[in-house]
Amino acid sequence: MSAAPLCLVPTGFGINCEAETAHAFELAGGRVETPHLSDLAAQPERLASARILAFAGGFSFGDHLGAGRALAMRVRTRLGAALERFVADGGLVIGICNGFQTMVRLGLLPAGHIGEQSVTLAENHHGAFYDGWVTLAFDAASPCVWTRGLERMDVPVRHGEGRLICSPAARARVESEHLAPCRYLDPESGRAAERFPHNPNGSEGGLAGLCDPSGRIFGLMPHPEAFLYAENHPAWRRGGANSPRGLEIFRRGIEAARAGA
């Protein structure tokens, strides 16, 4: 077995899920560092030694200018070149909730490189922040290395801006290239959920996350890092936690990093 891959989980400026994201990677077999974004920007070469970069959840800069916008500007101007290199060299990236919003603003998803923004995460249809558990269904045909072999998973969502809207061109590409690894599931119909609460934000087609064509770059609104213990599941005392834990996503990321995916 190869050495534990290094995972970087930058923090600071209102990112606030770094502890559970770091713990998820540790449980999955990774080596984790949580540098402050300013320190990482001052030493961008630290990225080169890492295999995984995680944009954790939070309220970066209060999401005051729209979720993730100010953080994306900070990353673009201070860390953009290093991030481009990291991706070009085959590094894996995951963005969760605010991290996903940030990646979308950077253009990193679904394109796979920093550039023009082609999809957005708009204010939830019902106009409020919402905390609840949803069920995800995974697309077996997606190139996403983070979700390989997963079918369904219960996870919490906690956001006010998660309604995924694609430009028409981006939407066509997402569908044809299977760049939507996970969708909100309506457990009654077995199909992608269109309506609240199974679809917590009104995302078109129930889109919950996106990956790039390489499958190494992945972002999603739900929080798999908040489901590391059986007791996180709302039904744990009733024996209802049959769902795989969110930890499985991090395991797959580490596996892919080990395999040099």
Partner: peptide
């Protein structure tokens, strides 16, 4: 449900 009650991933 408008209050985040799961951040930190420690809720039981």
């Amino acid at each position: 449900r408008r209050y985040d009650h799961e951040v930190k991933g420690l809720s039981v």
